[in-house]
Nucleic acid binder design. Structure first.
Lengths: 190, 190
DNA sequence: GTCTATAGGACGATAGAC
DNA sequence: GTCTATCGTCCTATAGAC
């Protein structure tokens, strides 16, 4: 991996763990092994580097989600697979975390990838839930868009809970809880 | 309001908006109107001030929640009232936000109020959901603890969604979504 | 491309006068 | 209690040699 890639990677890591304000160019240099001059040769500054890092993280995030959404199984099975996908609960969401970073949200360029990612997630889930409703996999009375928002929120909130309690299990609890709510009134439930 | 209180209040505000790393003593002084010497007379430093601010925020948060949990109505009505309570969605949760702050989570003293707050919320909701299940207000097959975790997560995740989309409506969508999930298989549902 | 040197400012805290 | 002065460090960036 070349220096440029190592810089992006290190920035992604630090952004995930410490956020934008908490991430200094010096820390990025230390983690990536690149020197001062090297970093400023490849990127104009902290903001430019952060943009590359955020776009990369958001892009990968969407690709991984898409792989599940367009994967095998019924609509409900794909929704469930997405919710059950393994995540590093205690580390939080690398994209969702950025919403709490005022400097990221204040910059339209930095903010855009975050916004797009959540738009894609809720959009895809809305479509899948609509399909699940039509096919009788879930209760047809459920509003697809509202339910999709609730599902995405459970995941994002699950990270908060996991970090607050210091246990990744709390994340699983929240996911189990919302899956229980969906499953218990699905036509195939006992 | 005396200087000490103004310092705590300003710190709460800044912690809410910018987090611990993003909040400097200088900014606290500016917002509170207190001078350098004044701040360090009342508090040992940034961490001590943050502790007072976090304890205050977490305490108020728990009191407001308790007021709804022990208020009028059936168990399900109280759960619903809690979910529907007005919140400043775009500002995020002043307590939940801190879970993304590594410096806060690394300090046991700063972390404790956050942990306790979420323990109380999930605990109270678990009890109410158990009661609602026993009284037939919701499906008795729902696991109270898992469902409670999901509800708290929806609220916390709702803030993330609202900030990501830039619209407080997204928060309401998520709440509507999870209320829909509960309502649709409650015995009183159409 | 990468290095070292340097800069102006902010950060977090301390000291001592009043 | 509050003020001003001062401190050492880190932050973010630029300059220029190699």
């Amino acid at each position: 991996m070349d220096t440029r890639e190592r810089l992006i990677d290190s920035t992604r890591e630090l952004l995930w763990e410490r956020g934008y304000v908490g991430t200094s160019p010096k820390a990025i240099q230390r983690l990536s092994g690149a020197g001062q001059g090297s970093m400023y040769h490849h990127f104009g500054g902290k903001a430019e580097l952060a943009l590359a890092a955020i776009e990369r993280s958001a892009g990968e995030h969407r690709e991984r989600a898409d792989a599940v959404f367009t994967g095998p199984g019924t609509a409900l099975e794909r929704v469930t697979a997405y919710l059950r996908r393994e995540r590093e609960a205690l580390r939080g969401c690398p994209v969702g975390r950025l919403t709490h970073d005022p400097d990221v949200m204040a910059d339209p360029a930095l903010r855009a990838p975050v916004e797009e990612t959540f738009a894609l997630l809720t959009g895809r889930l809305t479509a899948l839930l609509a399909e699940a409703g039509e096919k009788g996999e879930i209760d047809a009375r459920l509003d697809p868009a509202d339910t999709a928002a609730a599902l995405v929120a459970v995941l994002q909130g699950g990270y908060v809970l996991a970090r607050a309690t210091g246990s990744a299990e709390t994340y699983d609890r929240a996911v189990d809880g919302v899956l229980g709510l969906i499953a218990v009134h699905s036509p195939t439930a006992p």
